[in-house]
Design a binder for these strands. Structure first.
Lengths: 64, 64
DNA sequence: CCACAATGTAAAGCTCCTTTTACATCACCC
DNA sequence: GGGTGATGTAAAAGGAGCTTTACATTGTGG
């Protein structure tokens, strides 16, 4: 499962730290998600997608 | 976070067991999600939504 | 009444998500 | 060269997701 968080965050001009603060998670969590080290929880995935004005499916791509 | 899994499953005429088998999880997992005892993981949420032909946001509602 | 399918629930156990703390690198600026 | 911001990474700890096994309830059909 990969995702577009890094690109979307870059386009928004935010640091990992700043994005984490907006979403209520640590910068390490943002970093891990961007690198695909693990998938976010469902509520965090929804918050992330909503923050960037996308659907969950647009931001997170299942590799099937 | 509540969801429409029970209604969608009912409309599809499937038991919790049958839905679990289609999605590769146990019936207890389906049961717990329907009752809101916990949220599914992101990959399972995406599989559930896709199975019912909906987006994740249509099936899972954040209570904000 | 006796199966049987469907559902609810609980415990134990494993893996995954997230946090905090901490250190390390790299680039940029003064 | 020293400070600062952004990023990568690691360890420990706690909580959440999911499994298996097991038992209990309910409704339905023979």
């Amino acid at each position: 499962m990969d995702n577009d968080v890094r690109e979307l965050r870059g386009a928004a001009g935010l640091s990992q730290q700043a994005l984490g603060e907006r979403l209520g998670v640590s910068r390490q969590t943002i970093n891990a998600i961007e690198q695909g080290r693990y998938d976010p929880s469902l509520p965090l995935a929804i918050r992330l997608a909503r923050f960037f004005g996308r659907t969950v499916e647009e931001v997170f791509h299942c590799d099937d």
